[in-house]
Design a protein around this nucleic acid. Structure first.
Lengths: 334, 334
DNA sequence: CTGAAAGCGCTTACAG
DNA sequence: CTGAAAGCGCTTACAG
C-alpha cells in the first residue's frame, strides 16, 4: 500500500501538497494538482482512514443498533431502511456501523463506550418506543444522535428527530376510501399506549369528521399486531348492526388480518370492503389482491436523518415527512 | 477523554505497562495490574480504536454490502441475519460496517476501495447468486472474505463459505409429511437455473425414493418467487388426476401461495394437505394456520462466518450447517 | 502556493 | 516485569 509520503516523493512535492490535493484541491496550482493526481493514480494510492481519523478525531462512522428480532415483531422494512440510510451516509463520505445492545436504558453504556473508543461519531436511533428513555439519556450525556420516530412525550422531544406524518397518511387513506364510495370506514389500531397509533388514528378520525362520516364504534384497538387480532376485530366490525365498508389499519399485519377475515366470509377486498394498511411492507405486494398501503419515504427519511446528525448546527431539529398512499387492489379493484 | 499517557501518569507506571494491562494482562504483576485498572476506572479511560488500528493495521471491522431492495424480493430474514452476524462479530471484538455497491462485478471496486482505505479488514458476502462472479474476483485480488451461500459452480468454490444443507432440510420436511400420513408429496421450486432450489429439490426427490413415494409430475417449477406463482402451481397439482396431499415449497412465499389456493378451494392446510415452506420468515408465523418451515440456524451461520473470516488459518474453509424444521399447523393440525 | 515539523494515541521491539 | 523511544499515516498550524 502506497502512503502519502510515497506519493509526495513520486510527484516531487511535499506531503502537505498531496494532502491538499485530496482535501483542498483549490489550494493547488492546476498543473501541480494534475501532477499529484497522476502520481496518486500511478501508485494506486488510497488514504488510510485510520490515520486521518486519528488526526482529525472524526471517524465518519454512524452507529446503528440492530434490533433483536425476538424482541417484538420482525422489522419488515428494515432492509429498505438500512439501504436508504447507508446510501444517504455514503453521499457524505460516511458509513454505518452496526452494533447490538440491550433494550432501553440498559443499552446506553454500549452507546457511550462506542463513542469513547472512537468507533463512531454519533448514532441513529430507530424502533423508537413511546416514552423511549434513550433520547433523554443521550442528550444528557451530550452524545450526538438523531431519532427516527418520536417519543410522544408531553414535553418537547430530546434531540433532533425525523418522522413520518402518520395522521396525514391515514387521512389520505380515509379520503381515498371515501372517494371510492365507502361511507362507513373503521380504524384498526394498537393499544392506546402507542403514541404512533394514536397519531395515525387521529388522522382517520379528523378526516371522517370533515367528510361527515361516522366514527362511533368504528375505532377498534387490537391487543397485538397480528393477523389473528386483525381478523378478530374485522369479524366484530362485520357482525355489527351496521357493517363497515372500509377499514383503515394501522399496520400491514393487521390489514392482512382484515383480508383473511373478508376471504373467510367470501367477501372480496376492494369490492365489498376497501382496505388499507401502513408501511407498504413486502407483505402488501405479496398478497392478492395487493394491499393498498401507506409508504414511508425511506430515502427522504434517511437523508434527513443524516443531515440532522452531521449537518451544520443551523440545520433545524425536526423533520416531519409526508407518506405516500400506494394504491392496490384491496381498495380499488381493476 | 483520557489517554494512555494520562492513565500511566495516574498509576505511576509507563505507557507500555498500561497497554499491557489492556492487551496482555498476564505480563503484569497482580498488584501492578490492580493499580493500573484502578486508574483506568478512575479516569474513565477507553482506548482510542483509531490509534490502535493505525498501529496494528487491523480495524476490526467487517464489511457487509446491504442488498438494494428493488433488486429482487425483500430479504425477509435480513434483520435476523444481521443481528446474528453483529453478535457473532462482537464476541471477537469486531463490528459490522455497512455499505452499498452496484450488483455483481460492477461493485467490486467499492470492495477494493474500502479495504485499501482501511475501513474494513474483510467482507461477508450474502445474497450469493448462482455462479456469483464476486467470489472469484475477491479471491484473485487476495481480498479477505467469506460467503454465506454457495455459488454452485462445477469447480470448487473460490474462498471459504458457510451454507445450510437445503437438501437435508427438504428431506426432513418430506419425512415429516410422510410421518403425518401424506403419500403424494409435491415439490414447488424455482427455475432450474437456481442451484439453491435444485439442491433443496434433490433432498425431496431422494427422500421420496427412499420412502417409495412417487415423484413423477410432482416437481413444479414456479417462474417467480411469488404467492401468485405458488397458488397457480398448487392449482395444477390439485386439478391433476391424482391430487397431492403434501407440498414441500422451496420458499415461504411459494408456500403462502399454496395456503391461499387451498383456502380458495375450501381446503384446510394441515388437514387436507400438509404444507411446508423454507426460511421460517416472519410470514410463517403470521399466517393461520402457522406455516411449517425450515429454519436456517442464523446464530450458527453467523458464528461460522466470523470464525472462517477472522480465525486462524487452519480453521477449515467450508461449513455446511443443518437446518431445523419448525412445525406449525400447516402440516400438523392441533 | 509550498515545505519542514509536530503531533493525534496507540503498540512494540529493544534494553535494563 | 518495566521503561524510554520509535513509528503507524495522516493533518495542520507555522514559516517562507
Amino acid at each position: 500500500m502506497a502512503t502519502l509520503k510515497q506519493v509526495a516523493a513520486h510527484a516531487d512535492v511535499s506531503v502537505q501538497t498531496v494532502s491538499n490535493a485530496l482535501n483542498a484541491p483549490h489550494r493547488l496550482r492546476p498543473d501541480t494538482l494534475r501532477r499529484v493526481n497522476q502520481s496518486i493514480e500511478a501508485l494506486h494510492y488510497r488514504p488510510n482512514r485510520n490515520a486521518r481519523s486519528l488526526r482529525t478525531s472524526a471517524v465518519e462512522l454512524i452507529g446503528y443498533c440492530v434490533p433483536s428480532p425476538p424482541n417484538g415483531q420482525a422489522h419488515l422494512v428494515m432492509d429498505q431502511f438500512l439501504h436508504a440510510l447507508c446510501s444517504a451516509a455514503e453521499t457524505t463520505g460516511r458509513h454505518i456501523l452496526l452494533f447490538t445492545a440491550p433494550t432501553g436504558l440498559e443499552g446506553m453504556p454500549t452507546y457511550e463506550d462506542l463513542l469513547a473508543r472512537r468507533l463512531v461519531d454519533g448514532f441513529v436511533l430507530s424502533q423508537t418506543q413511546t416514552h423511549d428513555p434513550r433520547h433523554g439519556w443521550l442528550k444528557e450525556q451530550r452524545i450526538p444522535f438523531v431519532s427516527f420516530g418520536r417519543v410522544w412525550k408531553e414535553t418537547s422531544q430530546p434531540g433532533p428527530f425525523v418522522d413520518v406524518d402518520g395522521a396525514a397518511g391515514c387521512a389520505a387513506a380515509t379520503r381515498h376510501l371515501y372517494a371510492t364510495g365507502r361511507r362507513r370506514i373503521a380504524f384498526l389500531s394498537w393499544p392506546k399506549s402507542s403514541g404512533l397509533a394514536e397519531d395515525r388514528m387521529g388522522g382517520w378520525r379528523q378526516t371522517c369528521k370533515e367528510l361527515g362520516l361516522p366514527t362511533t364504534g368504528l375505532a377498534k384497538r387490537c391487543p397485538k399486531d397480528s393477523i389473528e387480532a386483525g381478523a378478530r376485530a374485522t369479524a366484530e366490525l362485520l357482525d355489527a348492526a351496521e357493517p363497515v365498508d372500509g377499514i383503515v389499519a394501522v399496520s400491514d399485519v393487521l390489514a392482512l388480518g382484515v383480508l383473511r377475515e373478508l376471504g373467510a366470509r367470501g367477501y372480496t377486498a376492494g369490492v365489498d370492503v376497501g382496505v388499507t394498511g401502513f408501511d407498504d411492507s413486502p407483505l402488501a405486494s405479496v398478497v392478492s389482491p395487493g394491499l393498498t398501503s401507506i409508504r414511508q419515504p425511506m430515502d427522504e427519511i434517511a437523508g434527513a436523518l443524516i443531515t440532522l446528525l452531521t449537518g451544520p448546527a443551523g440545520t433545524g431539529t425536526e423533520h416531519l415527512l409526508q407518506p405516500e398512499l400506494v394504491i392496490r387492489g384491496s381498495s380499488a379493484p381493476g
